[in-house]
């Protein structure tokens, strides 16, 4: 039987995702939250874990470098990978929201400028609302943009809102709830059906 490869994103969801696997009885002896290792095997040596950059994870699964991935809905919506999205893992829960200064209006003269890691999500949301916008793609420290006048508002994920608060920003509109999903490569679903189904089944049982 060939190895089943699971990709986890480095960063905030990795730990929770790893604990989901552990509850399902899939343990990686080498895994701990501070590990620098990027590839490791589980105890039975049938499942391989790889740690990849969050934004790259959908690509790994879509192209079949990993069979399965655990990744936030925000990243899926932003990348639109051609994969199966088989389950909601109910972890990594947060919101995608528009944030800005208190009492700020989303109606401005001309296009509203928005700094974000999620241009695709942002554009489709505002298009539906009929608000004309201009997005500025940033890769981090999004909160900085309105403070120094780079943008009017930002679109970002909000968990607790602490970072926003510390920078004097508030949520102006909640766009959607997101959580971590289990995605599967379409070809691997056909060639490794049993392995994949049994893994999903184990995880389901662990939740009950």
């Amino acid at each position: 039987m060939s190895l089943l490869t699971i990709a986890l994103p480095t960063g905030r969801t990795a730990k929770q995702a790893a604990s989901v696997l552990e509850k399902a009885g899939i343990r990686f002896p080498d895994y701990h939250s501070k590990t620098r290792k990027l590839v490791m095997l589980d105890e039975t040596k049938t499942i391989q874990l790889i740690l990849v950059k969050t934004a790259d994870l959908p690509t790994y699964v879509e192209k079949g470098a990993a069979d399965i991935g655990m990744i936030g809905k925000d990243v899926i919506l932003e990348n639109q990978p051609d994969v199966y999205e088989l389950a909601d893992l109910h972890i990594g829960k947060c919101k995608v929201a528009v944030a800005g200064f208190p009492n700020q209006s989303l109606k401005v003269d001309g296009p509203l400028t928005i700094a974000t890691k999620y241009p695709v999500i942002t554009e489709s949301y505002f298009e539906e609302k009929g608000i004309s916008i201009e997005t500025i793609k940033l890769n981090g420290s999004i909160e900085l943009a309105p403070l120094i006048g780079l943008s009017d508002v930002i679109v970002d994920i909000v968990e607790t809102g602490t970072t926003l608060k510390e920078n004097g920003l508030i949520v102006l509109a909640e766009m959607m709830d997101v959580s971590t999903r289990l995605i599967v490569n379409k070809a691997r679903f056909s060639t490794k059906t049993e392995q994949i189904e049994s893994m999903i089944e184990k995880r389901k049982k662990a939740l009950e």
Binding site: S2, V61, E62, K63, G64, A65, D82, N185, K186, A187, R188, S190, T191
Partner: peptide, 9 residues
Amino acid sequence: GFVEQYGRP
């Protein structure tokens, strides 16, 4: 059709 080792049809 799918084959092993390749992630797309």
